Amino acid sequence: MASQGTKRSYEQMETDGERQNATEIRASVGKMIGGIGRFYIQMCTELKLSDYEGRLIQNSLTIERMVLSAFDERRNKYLEEHPSAGKDPKKTGGPIYRRVNGKWMRELILYDKEEIRRIWRQANNGDDATAGLTHMMIWHSNLNDATYQRTRALVRTGMDPRMCSLMQGSTLPRRSGAAGAAVKGVGTMVMELVRMIKRGINDRNFWRGENGRKTRIAYERMCNILKGKFQTAAQKAMMDQVRESRNPGNAEFEDLTFLARSALILRGSVAHKSCLPACVYGPAVASGYDFEREGYSLVGIDPFRLLQNSQVYSLIRPNENPAHKSQLVWMACHSAAFEDLRVLSFIKGTKVLPRGKLSTRGVQIASNENMETMESSTLELRSRYWAIRTRSGGNTNQQRASAGQISIQPTFSVQRNLPFDRTTIMAAFNGNTEGRTSDMRTEIIRMMESARPEDVSFQGRGVFELSDEKAASPIVPSFDMSNEGSYFFGDNAEEYDN
């Protein structure tokens, strides 16, 4: 783990906690998980779902989305002020799938948001429990990260689609708070800032007046979040320049895209947490497990152990491969979309394939898809080993990566060399080191050039047997250095459309 220093740990961010010791953190995270579980059980009762239907990941996603929508204050306010045809701002819903006479049927349900809020609060001892809501947002974000390569979004903001390893959390809503900021990748933060800068260039009043003052505060806050992700002084200094700019424009845009590229080699610290679907927490609570009393951590053995003992089902389209669908969801559960496939294969105990080789589309089923041909199958979400999630980018030494994705962002704290394609990355730096950030740029390029592919990161860190909950005997895996390590390699994943 990167030293926490003055930073709060993510469990504290996750639970809005002030400084807590490890036991208190485990208890408050457990409380959050228990609340999600209780809410899910109650919703299944309301909807009269069978046990099997309640364990269907598509039903879980609909129920999670309903509660997130019920608590989305800004959108609710907007919907009330701008009524649109056929949208009731006070209601929320989605597809629920039921097994009827041996076939899967889709039923569109509609609930009062007020009623959903009441059920959620009741499951969370009367609190709004925003930490639990954020947790579900991060699960949705991790699922998107594993399912889609955001080529269009990258290109629109002047970045290269091969930089997708920097895009963790790119679909997280803005209201996801400190826990959300911690899991956002460098590219995601750059993209958010670039969008602001572009608006400022096109709209003279963007930075002016009372609204402009708020915009400015948001801009500086985002700059500080991004600065905190960088691990070298030169990158941090460049972020200070971007933040202090009187009138952010093209120079800042250039600096930010430069920094994003540099992060492929001088990786930023991005938190990883295993956020599971509500249909995993519900049955665990129903079986009598007391998360608050037992304590829970999002970055240790607990999620692995929970998945070892969970039964989750998914709808499967006619030509999809259930094992591939399982891999997709497994990666999402562990926030591992940008991790090295060699490491993932070792931990999972079966070969993890790149996205383009998977015969599976996303987990969600569109409303126009034919239910007649839908089957369902068990998702295999178990693992051979477990490993500690990392909050750091690993040290800054790398190795060759593949054509589709030119770097990785480690999820697990496991000893290995970190793949990246130096030639491709360095070719993108057209040696432009003039301007006010020239000395920093020169320094950053120097550090990137001296990074050695064969150097090892996370020295001495290994994986653990599932029986080793105290992480007492690390097993340090050895990897084939020459092997392909990137998930979005030469990829044809669908595009994420909101």
Rank of each mutant, 00 (worst) to 15 (best):
Arg8Pro: 10
Ser9Lys: 03
Tyr10His: 15
Gln12Arg: 09
Gln12Met: 11
Thr15Pro: 00
Met32Arg: 03
Gly34Met: 07
Ile36Val: 12
Tyr40Ile: 04
Cys44Phe: 10
Leu47Met: 15
Lys48Ser: 14
Lys48Gly: 14
Leu56Tyr: 01
Leu56Trp: 11
Glu64Thr: 08
Ser69Asn: 08
Phe71Ser: 14
Asp72Tyr: 11
Glu73Leu: 09
Asn76Glu: 08
Asn76Gln: 12
Glu81Phe: 11
Gly86Gln: 14
Gly86Trp: 10
Pro89Met: 02
Pro89Gln: 06
Pro89Lys: 03
Gly93Thr: 04
Arg99Leu: 06
Glu107Asp: 12
Glu107Arg: 07
Leu108Glu: 08
Leu110Pro: 13
Glu114Gln: 13
Ile116Lys: 13
Arg118Phe: 02
Arg118Ala: 02
Asn124Thr: 07
Asp128Cys: 15
Leu133Asn: 02
His135Arg: 03
Met136Phe: 14
Asn142Asp: 11
Asn144Leu: 14
Tyr148Met: 06
Tyr148Gln: 04
Gln149Tyr: 07
Gln149Val: 07
Arg152Cys: 04
Val155Pro: 01
Val155Ile: 15
Val155Tyr: 05
Arg156Trp: 07
Thr157Tyr: 01
Thr157Met: 14
Asp160Pro: 03
Cys164Pro: 08
Leu166Cys: 05
Leu166Trp: 01
Gly169Ile: 06
Gly169His: 14
Leu172His: 11
Gly177Glu: 12
Ala178Tyr: 03
Ala179Asn: 12
Ala179Trp: 11
Lys184Met: 13
Lys184Leu: 07
Gly185Tyr: 07
Met189Leu: 14
Leu193Tyr: 04
Leu193Trp: 11
Val194Gly: 08
Arg195Pro: 05
Arg204His: 02
Trp207Gly: 03
Trp207Ser: 06
Trp207Asp: 03
Trp207Lys: 02
Gly228Ile: 00
Phe230Gln: 09
Gln231Tyr: 04
Ala234Gln: 03
Gln235Pro: 07
Lys236Thr: 09
Ala237Thr: 11
Met239Leu: 05
Gln241Gly: 01
Asn247Cys: 08
Asn250Glu: 08
Asn250Val: 07
Ala251Trp: 06
Ala251Phe: 11
Glu254Pro: 11
Leu256Tyr: 01
Phe258Tyr: 11
Phe258Val: 10
Phe258Met: 09
Leu259Val: 15
Ala260Glu: 08
Ala263Pro: 10
Lys273Thr: 07
Ser274Cys: 09
Tyr281Gln: 11
Pro283Lys: 03
Asp290Met: 04
Arg293Tyr: 15
Leu298His: 07
Val312Leu: 11
Pro318His: 13
Asn319Ser: 13
Glu320Tyr: 06
Glu320Asp: 15
Gln327Val: 12
Leu328Trp: 06
Val329Ser: 00
Trp330Val: 00
Ala332Ile: 00
Cys333Asp: 00
His334Asp: 07
Ser335Gln: 15
Phe338Val: 03
Val343Thr: 15
Leu344Ala: 04
Gly349Asn: 06
Thr350Phe: 11
Leu353Arg: 15
Leu358Pro: 12
Gln364Arg: 12
Ser367Tyr: 11
Asn370Pro: 00
Met371Cys: 07
Thr373Arg: 15
Met374Pro: 04
Glu375Gln: 15
Leu379Phe: 05
Leu379Ile: 10
Leu379Tyr: 01
Leu381Glu: 05
Ala387Tyr: 03
Arg389His: 02
Asn395Ser: 09
Ala403Ser: 15
Ser407Gly: 10
Gln409Pro: 01
Gln415Met: 04
Arg416Gln: 02
Asn417Ala: 05
Pro419His: 14
Thr424Lys: 01
Asn432Asp: 13
Thr433Pro: 14
Thr437Ala: 07
Arg446Leu: 13
Pro453Trp: 13
Asp455Met: 12
Asp455Gln: 06
Val456His: 00
Phe464His: 01
Leu466Asn: 05
Ser467Cys: 15
Asp468Val: 10
Lys470Thr: 07
Ser473Gln: 09
Ile475Tyr: 12
Val476Ser: 00
Phe479Val: 07
Ser482Ile: 12
Asn483Glu: 07
Asn483Thr: 12
Glu484Met: 15
Ser486His: 09
Tyr487Phe: 11
Tyr487Asn: 08
Asn492Pro: 02
Asn492Gly: 01
Glu494His: 12
